[in-house]
């Protein structure tokens, strides 16, 4: 660590510091070759180029991300039915009524059950399947495809299919259960408040397991073959190899997947909307179904605006916290190893 990087060759630059390092090299190169008078015009041309290339993307983000976010914040401090002028200013009243609403509190709880439930179910399952499919075995391609198909299926289509399968009495699941002598719940799987959320969680696991498996498989390709070979030479068993080599080296992939899964679960809408519409008896409401229900169904756009801002804040806070406490370790280790190597 005593050695600081003094003059890295371009090929050695990689990872998160790459852009800065490359910029430094370019600057140095420019200093060497450029005539003294050309420097200022070069810089201007560069700025113009950047502006030109970035402008379309910025315009799109402003129009489709920044503007709607700003509008939601604005709506959230008014009582507004969706037409006519915005004039009934109510300050934070909408936030108070959202935060004290039993249904919204339930919805936040359901979101967190889905966040943790998804990770607890999909992580061991996904890891197990990925390790299995990473071995040379017969029918591997077919199995990979089967597991990945639900993920590429449109959410609405998958939802409608499951909705039909889970129909009480006439659906396939109930028919099979009664066929083998089991008693399906009288109100059906999606109609019983005590079961509905868990059934939704299972359907989500079926749908998103493919993503976890594909990401883990990709991560597994990055584990150097030599490590396995040397472990074998040392006489390590398959389990020992997985536990001490594969899973630790898969860490960054797992942590990134957890992040994606968490954000997806917080914003969960489509599958719940199709399967239960947030019912029965609000047993599966999520923050997103709550705000759609308040906004487009009841035309309380102020309440919906406040709920969407709260959802945004929760997601943002969780994302930042995750970056800070968990993902940062990955980037820090990377930096440390690079420094040590230099």
């Amino acid at each position: 660590m005593a050695h600081e990087v003094t003059d890295p060759a371009p090929a050695a630059v990689s990872g998160h510091d790459a852009p800065a390092a490359r910029r430094a090299i370019a600057r140095r190169a420019a200093r060497r070759s450029g005539a003294p008078g050309g420097r200022r015009s070069d810089a201007w041309r560069k700025r113009l180029e950047i502006a030109l290339f970035v402008a379309p993307a910025l315009a799109l983000i402003a129009l489709f991300v920044a503007w709607p976010v700003a509008s939601a914040v604005r709506f959230s401090v008014y009582r507004w039915k969706g037409f006519g002028p915005l004039e009934d200013f109510v300050g934070f009243d909408n936030y108070v009524s959202v935060l004290t609403d039993d249904v919204f509190q339930g919805a936040v709880g359901h979101n967190f059950i889905i966040v943790f439930g998804s990770i607890l179910l999909q992580l061991p399952l996904g890891l197990g399947i990925a390790l299995l499919l990473n071995r040379d075995m017969w029918g591997r391609g077919l199995l990979r495809t089967i597991i990945f198909v639900p993920y590429v299926l449109a959410e609405v289509i998958a939802g409608v299919v499951w909705f039909q399968l889970l129909q009480p009495q006439y659906g396939m699941v109930d028919a099979i259960m009664s066929g083998i002598g089991l008693d399906p719940p009288a109100q059906g799987w999606l109609g019983t408040p005590d079961h509905a959320l868990w059934v939704v969680l299972l359907v989500l696991t079926w749908k998103y397991l493919g993503l976890a498996v594909i990401l883990f498989l990709a991560g597994l390709q990055g584990v150097p073959e030599e490590l396995y070979e040397s472990a074998q030479l040392d006489g390590a068993s398959w389990w020992q190899v997985q536990r001490s080599i594969t899973i630790p080296l898969l860490g960054p992939t797992i942590r990134t997947w957890c992040f994606l899964s968490m954000i997806g679960s917080l914003q969960l809408f489509d599958m719940v909307w199709i399967l239960t519409g947030g019912g029965p008896a609000n047993a599966t409401t999520t923050m997103a179904t709550f705000l759609v229900n308040q906004g487009t169904d009841r035309q309380n756009y102020g309440i919906a605006g406040a709920a969407s801002v709260i959802l945004f804040v929760i997601s943002f806070a969780m994302a930042v916290a995750y970056q800070f406490f968990i993902l940062r370790r990955d980037t820090m280790t990377e930096r440390r190893t690079r420094k040590a190597a230099a």
């Binding site: 009480p168 009495q169 059906g188 999606l190 239960t276």
Partner: peptide, 14 residues
Amino acid sequence: NPGFLSTPAQTGPT
């Protein structure tokens, strides 16, 4: 009807 809590009003045969 069984499952009435999740039965839709008019869409589909169930």
